[in-house]
Design a protein around this nucleic acid. Sequence first.
DNA 1: CTGAAAGCGCTTACAG
DNA 2: CTGAAAGCGCTTACAG
Lengths: 342, 342
Amino acid sequence: MSKTSSNKSRASGKITLAAVAAHAGVSAMTASRALNQPALVSAPVRERVELAVAELGYVPNRAARALASAQSNVIVVLVPSLSNAVFTAVLEGIQDAVGSSNYQLLIGNTRYSDAEEEKLLGIYLQSNPDGILLSSLSHSARVTQMLATCGVPVVSMMDLGSAPGQVSVGFSQFDAGYAMARHLIGKGYTRIGFIGAQLDERTLRRADGYRKAMSDAGLLDARLELMVGEPSTIALGAELLGRMLDQVPDCDAVFCCNDDLAHGAIYQCQRRGIAVPGQLAVCGFNDLPASAWMTPSVTTIGTPRYQIGFEAASLLRALIKGETPPVTRIDLGFTLMARESA
Amino acid sequence: MSKTSSNKSRASGKITLAAVAAHAGVSAMTASRALNQPALVSAPVRERVELAVAELGYVPNRAARALASAQSNVIVVLVPSLSNAVFTAVLEGIQDAVGSSNYQLLIGNTRYSDAEEEKLLGIYLQSNPDGILLSSLSHSARVTQMLATCGVPVVSMMDLGSAPGQVSVGFSQFDAGYAMARHLIGKGYTRIGFIGAQLDERTLRRADGYRKAMSDAGLLDARLELMVGEPSTIALGAELLGRMLDQVPDCDAVFCCNDDLAHGAIYQCQRRGIAVPGQLAVCGFNDLPASAWMTPSVTTIGTPRYQIGFEAASLLRALIKGETPPVTRIDLGFTLMARESA
DNA sequence: CTGAAAGCGCTTACAG
DNA sequence: CTGAAAGCGCTTACAG
């Protein structure tokens, strides 16, 4: 009735590689090889080991493997939000790129907070990740230092970096902001408001692009900008549309820094009986699904978010393998979707 | 110039607990205690260890800890989708409940696929999780067996379980489907169509509730049901609205199994000049933000998804600690949001 | 193609 | 309150 191990044992009670090896009549390291580098093991031995695995229901212990091999097979991903469809698409791209490899994703939600980013990175670094995927180019001093110290390859997503050694996959948020403003100016609008929320790095770059275009056209007017730090929501877009109109009664177009805000603004116009684009043009950013379906359909910027995640993760995998990729700044571009609303 | 360790060393080169201990002039296990059970260590020793940690930039190795303690501090979370706002809200609730504890979330996206769920669970079980959070009540035979074998506490989210020993947090999808159908019937609609997509467990239970209500009212008619396996999107809702009208020309109301579909259906009505609810009532499920803001505003079911994640994670933590919670079936209810569209 | 030994970095009993 | 020893389950050099 007595078990093999004594009562003082710290064994987990689970099937170990050693047990599999014993069952197959080989050494533990041969069993290890049969599973991880099958080509180095003779066919009959491999089959016996595989049989033992199946019969015993062996589940490898990832912690032990990580400790012994000094390789975690973990990739850390930090996104600023999960409720923003842009970043869930990025995550799907990453998941698909990682696919059926043995990498495990550690997904952190920084909530657009530097403090939270520091905390998460500190915790995730304990898992000794093989690589890190970040959603912005600039970070707090502490995060920058942690990244430098840990010596783990990093790829930044969404915008294009300019710092030396920085690896980035995305598109120029500045150019996209500029292009949208140009589109509105080209349509003849002159009093073009900019509604920005959250004020994260990307929104600020889009605002910069807008300003440049307005300035180039001699239309720049600081009163046309409405910037708030709250998270972007439809409700906020509805509210800010009202404030914009109070603030700039002669406003003839509104460039919202994302589609949630633009949708809210348009719903607000519908409630107030303001014709879009007749009385007021409204445009957004990101081309969320509703933008193509609403009445009026929404003019916006199509962004390759899934692709960004996919390419960033692919690039990171190359870096982890020690490869030197030909390009370390991948511009995936954007598309101006000119529709009915502006 | 020579380093302490020989060239044959497999050491990672990182600062270890032993180094911290040496720096502080204590044993490794005292250093370990100072960090993990500070109350058991004298104040001066604790301070010396903390100083050493700071000076050396020590980062604990989670794999080593997991291996030695047989405790991973990992919680596995499986959701069927990341593009569905319902599940990102669930995730946010979980993240908040786990908060600043030392738990690490391993988030898997099963894409509504049993095969994917099996694969992910198999991989995640290698991390020896302390607990598992699932998004449905029923699973493939293999998954059910894996869950039973691994002996890890499991909490199911979204719907309410009935199987013995099953721990669940959610609300009755059946009752909610019934309530919405009753609402429409109470408004005098008699030819109420049901549009279902994805056909996951939750959608099927809502459909069951709808059928019961229709049957109770003597209005059941199988031709009123339009069920497709594709993922729910606005575009699909728009398409299915058309097919429903072709299929059942005298249809006077449509119950969409979720808001994405309902929004698409309403946008389609707007394009075709069909008055909602004048000619056709449309309602949805989940109360996504746009539902309150669209014109017409959308009648739907408000669901406590954030709360489900929060409570499920809290309950799981109790189970992990070995506590026996008073309730193992937490009904968080739902709210019928009667608005303009139905 | 296969194996005996050592070690990854931590924590667990057990003593004192 | 503190420590010497052993061990968690795997993989890495090194031999043969």
